[in-house]
Structures are given as C-alpha cells and as structure tokens.
Simulated assay, not measured.
Amino acid sequence: MVKENLAEVEARISKACERAGRNREEVTLIAVSKTKPVSMMEEAIGAGIVDFGENKVQEIVDKYEAIPQKLNWHMIGHLQRNKVKYIVDKVCMIHSVDSLKLAETISELAVKKNVVVPILIEVNMAGEDTKFGVAPEAAPGLVEAAAKLPGIRVNGLMTIAPFVENPEDNRIHFRNLRKLSVDITGKNIDNVSMSALSMGMTGDYEVAIEEGATMVRVGTGIFGARNYAVPDSL
C-alpha cells in the first residue's frame, strides 16, 4: 500500500511542479510517519524515501534507535523546551520554532553537543487560535533575533494551514508565506537563508507547491489514516 500511495503522491508532486514551471528537484517530500510503525517506514525507505517527519520527540528517539539506515529526521510538531535535549543531535531540521526562548534552548544545547541545527520559524498565517506559530508581523523580528544565536541556522519558514475541504482556500496562506519569505530575504540578515518553505500537507500540497513550497509534509496520503493513541512518555 505504501509504495502505491507514494507513486501517486510522486506523480501529483511532479504535475504540480510542471504547472508551476518548477523543477521536481526543488521540492522535498517529507513522509510524515507519526504514529506509524517502523515496518511501514521501511516500505517507504525501500521506495527511496529518506526524509521523515515526526510530531513527537518520543517517536523520533524510538525510531532513530530502531532504524539502522541514515535518515533525515524532521521535527515538525510543537516542541517543548525541556525535550529539545533528546533530539538536538538527531534531527536534520526543526520546523516548529515559534519563540525566541525555544530558539535559545536549541542554541544552548546545540553548542553543548557541538552541532549546528537548521531551524524554520513557524508562522501562524491564518491566525488560528488552535495553532502554534508566531503572527506574520512578528516573524521578521524572531528571525533576526534567532539568527544571532550560536549553534543554529535559520533556513526559512513553516506554516500549518487550516483544515479545509477545498485546498484552493489555503492558496492565500501559502502565497502570503512566500511573500513574507521574500520580504525577509530582502533584509539581508546574517546567518539567515530563506531557502526553505515548509508548507502543504496531504490535503493541499499541490497548491502549496504551486505557491513555492520547497518541502511538503505528507502523512495520510502515504501511510493512510493515523492512530492517535500513541503516548509521548518523555
């Protein structure tokens, strides 16, 4: 099932890139494996997937230890400061930095572990009360402050768009995140690259790609419906 689903997702990504006049290589597919067993991940790995996204620290730690292959682990869920220590040297990127305090914690622990952690600033583009992320107008300031910290590099922006029936409803949020990225690029801030735009999930990743996404986070479209009964014990 996973291989067949991946083939369909890949075809849709390629077509979205064609429509946008972009190269397929510009978009990284992150397979969101949260709540999914290692066996399903191994099927995806067998199909060529190396980028996996997790929402919970405990799952990253467990799967990191269980899977021998070298993978790119992306922390895409809300990250509590007291859990940063468990993953700071395991992940290739933290997508969900939404406060200077969190950035400072990542910085402090990255320096201790002698690593440089690429981060994305999470922006709540739709202003949803139920979502994490900074307001769009606060994002440039957070980027600038985080960029001064050692041990991290600001690589771009991330957003979680609203759940909608019609993916076109989210186009405005993706377009505005892209504009925000361009505005921040224009500030020429040291230690900042706006090369990554992490936006778009199973329901709307094609629209996100048309609006400039460089990373799409697809879970249900690859692995099927999730089991939310997985505890986070750390």
Rank of each mutant, 00 (worst) to 15 (best):
V182Q: 13
K187T: 09
V50M: 07
I94L: 07
A213T: 07
V57D: 02
V216A: 03
I67R: 00
E165A: 14
I172R: 14
V230S: 05
A139W: 08
M201H: 05
E128S: 06
T159H: 05
L234K: 02
V57K: 01
P150W: 11
I76W: 01
A139G: 09
E122V: 12
I184E: 03
I172G: 05
T214E: 06
I60C: 03
E168Q: 15
K179N: 10
A110E: 02
K36G: 01
P118E: 09
Y64W: 13
E144P: 10
K101C: 08
P136A: 14
I119D: 04
G224P: 05
M40N: 00
V27Y: 07
E122T: 08
R153G: 10
A126D: 13
K83H: 09
G203T: 07
E165F: 09
K70I: 13
S107T: 15
A31V: 08
R178N: 12
A139N: 09
V50H: 06
D98H: 06
A11K: 15
A31Q: 05
R178K: 08
I60P: 00
E59L: 00
V61C: 04
Y86M: 01
G203W: 03
V27D: 02
E144G: 06
V218N: 00
I106T: 13
G221S: 10
H173P: 07
T185N: 08
V115H: 08
V192M: 04
S107I: 12
I222P: 00
E206Y: 06
A146T: 11
P150V: 14
E128T: 09
N124Y: 13
Y228R: 08
K63C: 03
P150H: 10
E168P: 10
N55E: 06
E8C: 06
E10F: 10
V216Q: 02
V50Y: 02
R226V: 02
S233A: 08
